[in-house]
Design a protein around this nucleic acid. Structure first.
Lengths: 218, 218, 218, 218
DNA sequence: GATGAATGAGCATTCATTCAT
DNA sequence: AATGAATGAATGCTCATTCAT
């Protein structure tokens, strides 16, 4: 009851503390230099304790990815609470995505890690793996929902099924976000400057072009 | 001179042999399991010899990336030799990019590696780093040239400067290619199936939508 | 007192439960993979509780060994209740030993553990250590008793003192039992097949040869 | 040629040095406290070097076992060069075995390790594994040969096939040797004293009894 | 008494890089 | 130039044991 609940809360607090530390390391040193050792130090716990809360190193990073995807989805859900036209929702979703990566570059790292995992065969167990997958699917679903609303409310052409358009936005916005991420975090990446663009100009152009392509003629 | 030249050729031959081996390992085992050890074995040279031709492991992988970017650019240049409308050239460039990733997934890996490098501060030296950067810029320039031709020949609207449009295609096509790459190489990635699309349908939708956005009204 | 006694009973019940769990793990996973963790899980108690009943991991395993030696001795005692000739008793003791190892391989493991302990200096304390030693001595004594009876009833030659003959049977039967144990438990151990023998043939040959050596001429 | 051969010699010298160190540790601290760390220290090489000569820790210990079994077999072979009666050869083989364990207790440990390996599934690779197995078989074969000679020269009864008798001696002498080993190495093992025997008395009794059982009546 | 979270020493193994030959 | 043996720091992970609650 009270005690059990407190235990659970306490446990979650500790887990959260460890994830905080891991995020910090991820942000500061990058994935390559994130070790159980320095996470433990940062979290001020023993290395063994990490393994009480996470099955292995992968699980720990996927724990961050779970946070990452969850947070992104929450942000997306807020957008979908609006009653605006679907086309506007799509625009805002992409905008949120961009801001999210700007605010939480370490989350973007963890999502890249998740994306890369599936290749190596996923030999190690992680309870977070499935959760991350679900979150990613949910994120995609939210994008599809926005588009479907756009089709329904007439703001988006119905040349393609909503889910196919969603995939298009999903993948192309990923590309835009990647550029933005590199611009933010890699000192030597100067492509935006090279073409004389600001980030928001890139975003506007993106939405303008794709908007032309999908917007229903009024 | 003849001797000097022969020496240089010989050196290039060996370097090429090593890169072949490295590519093979990259393709077969992935970046995580590419070690100087197994590259040396595959190339049938000693580990020490690798260091005669490459400054360090990063340099070796960037050597692959140099090949990768060079090959892609060559493919792009072929496209630009055509006299078709700029809009068609853009379409073909993206298509080439997609096929390229399908045919040379290990090159895509090496380019991801290059993209990720700059973050950790590039602590290790690599002569290839600059070459890769130049190649990437050249690739981008080719894209911009196609678009400029499109603007010039009236097949592409001049709402945006060519370079800005180029960046748009550069980044969004990167997203499309990423989806395609994951579909090809990651067994558990089933997003395309989920939305009931083929890869070429995704490509067509992409070109259709962006085409609508940039095509000049005839 | 009633209460005190109940306490003691209760304590023994729990201790027994823990030993059951430890035996199960020992049987299923072997000594190398017996950890306080999985014993606690199997016994459905906390890890800390194990330490209330056993001083350390060694003590726990020696607790199993105590059971093991006790059970073997009980089996031996049954044999000695018979009024048959001593030579027959010896034969039966060895047979019992063989069957015992077949039926309780985990007990044999615990006895090997006990045998190996003394080497490293017995750095850790264990109350069971002495008990096991006593049990082993008792087992040996029972063997000696059977032989003494054989000498007394004329079925065994008195070339050697009973205890010396006992040691001979003790050690040689250990060797036979080891072969049998390996045959039972190690898939790749094929020595018996190699010589075209069954286990009971080995036993019979053993008893035949040693029987010839010790049997009094009738 | 000369150089290649020197290289090979040198390599064998280093490998031998490492095995020496490992033997030393095995003798001094026992198998449980033999770590790659302290072997490397003792051998005055780096930990990494050990892995250049041995595939893993198992392989290292099996390397000792290979030495152990080889040495034992060499000793056995010497015995078989004699022209004495087979029965005497058998006696001497067992005696050699006893002396061997007295002189090289660490070899006995390594052989126990080898015996225990097969159980855990042999998950790790070791080139020495097969060599050890072959050596063990060879040792057994030598025992069988001595017995066969005894049968042929009439010193041993032909109640049983030579190989079956060999197995009997193999296993029972193993038991004798174990007692002897424990007596030598375990301070608290006082069974021999308890029965008032010397080691060689145990051996003599063993040979006397089994001798009676197998010796042909003259 | 019971719990189980926390500890932290301990260990096998990998691998980029160096350098004597 | 080529070799490949040697290095040793780095790292993920285990597990017996302790102790605050």
């Amino acid at each position: 009851m009270g005690i059990t609940e407190r235990r659970i809360r306490e446990k979650e607090r500790k887990r959260s503390n460890m994830l905080d530390a891991a995020e910090f390391i991820l942000l500061e040193k990058g994935l390559d230099h994130l070790s159980m050792e320095n996470v433990a130090q940062k979290a001020e716990v023993s290395k063994g304790s990490l393994y009480q809360y996470f099955q292995n190193k992968n699980d720990l990073v996927l724990g961050i990815c779970y946070r990452a995807t969850h947070l992104l989805n929450e942000s997306f859900k807020e957008v979908l609470e609006s009653k605006r036209k679907g086309l506007m929702l799509v625009r805002e979703l992409v905008e949120r995505y961009l801001n999210y990566v700007k605010d939480h570059p370490q989350y973007y790292s963890s999502m890249k890690f998740f994306d890369n995992l599936n290749s190596s065969g996923i030999d190690s167990k992680s309870d977070y793996l499935e959760l991350c997958t679900k979150n990613r699917q949910e994120g995609f679903r939210l994008m599809a929902e926005a588009i479907q609303r756009g089709i329904d409310d007439g703001s988006i052409k119905n040349d393609f099924p909503a889910e196919q358009l969603a995939l298009l936005f999903w993948s192309t916005s990923h590309g835009i976000v990647t550029i933005s991420y590199m611009h933010q975090n890699y000192e030597h990446f100067r492509l935006l400057e090279h073409v004389g663009m600001q980030e928001n100009q890139l975003f506007n152009a993106y939405m303008h072009i794709l908007g032309c392509g999908i917007a229903a003629n009024s």
